[in-house]
Amino acid sequence: MINDKLFGIAMIVYLVATLFYIAHLVTKNRALGLAGTLTALGGWLINTAAIAVRWVETHNAGYGYVPLSNMYESMVFFSWSIMLIYLLFEHFYGYRSIGAFVAPLGFLGIAVVSLNPRISADIQPLVPALQSNWLTAHVVTCFFGYAAFAIGFAVSIMYLFRRRSERRGQSKEGGLLPPSRVLDELAYKAVAVGFPLLTLGILTGAAWANYAWGTYWSWDPKETWSLITWLVYAAYLHARFTAGWRGERLAWLSVIGFGCVIFTYWGVNYVLSGLHSYAG
């Protein structure tokens, strides 16, 4: 199949973009930053093409479905969403140094599933339960939300580093990373974009469950973990805009929130199912 080769190329291009961004971060050289942006954009276009090709290939295989149905397809879509939202962020806010922390996430998304022999890249027909347009709406909204949270996470990590060096006596301006005030604001922006998307993701999931099984909410582990994630980010936002929290406490909350995202996505499948499998 052609699609997985294309995903492989996108992965390598993302790695190159990461290197450019890191070089830009260290040297402050504008040309390197521009190279980072252009490679990231190139990688994203290849990623887009790969998804489109895979879509066509599902039709050629006789199954014809939107390629968002299994771990492989969702992870490459996760990378795609991270890079898309990051490039929009870069366009609107113009801080290229963030790329050094986000582009590696885009790279990792594809790398984790391409290089793991236990995750199949094969095109498999959908079981009847997954044949629904709600699935597409649900996955797209959830992953856009996750992608925004990934950026919030990357920026919060940068914030924590920056604060540490500021506490060690570095000046508030200058230095490798943007000033902590800016990072704090950008992390909040990312979370504020992600939260409504996650809300929509949970709602479309509930709508689908209601349509397919007659229960919009059944407290299964995946649902519950998405709610946990939602509650943590709701706490984050309220802490910020009503209780006036800023800074490190909030940055840690964003890191914890992203931990919940990852657990909802991977942990529920691999850790909790393992917990329950021997008893069942």
């Binding site: 709610l227 946990i228 919940c260 529920v268």
Partner: peptide, 14 residues
């Protein structure tokens, strides 16, 4: 309450 709900909900998934 938000954090308490999030934290206790974990029990029901484990």
């Amino acid at each position: 309450v938000l954090i308490a709900l999030a934290a206790t909900s974990i029990f029901g998934t484990v």
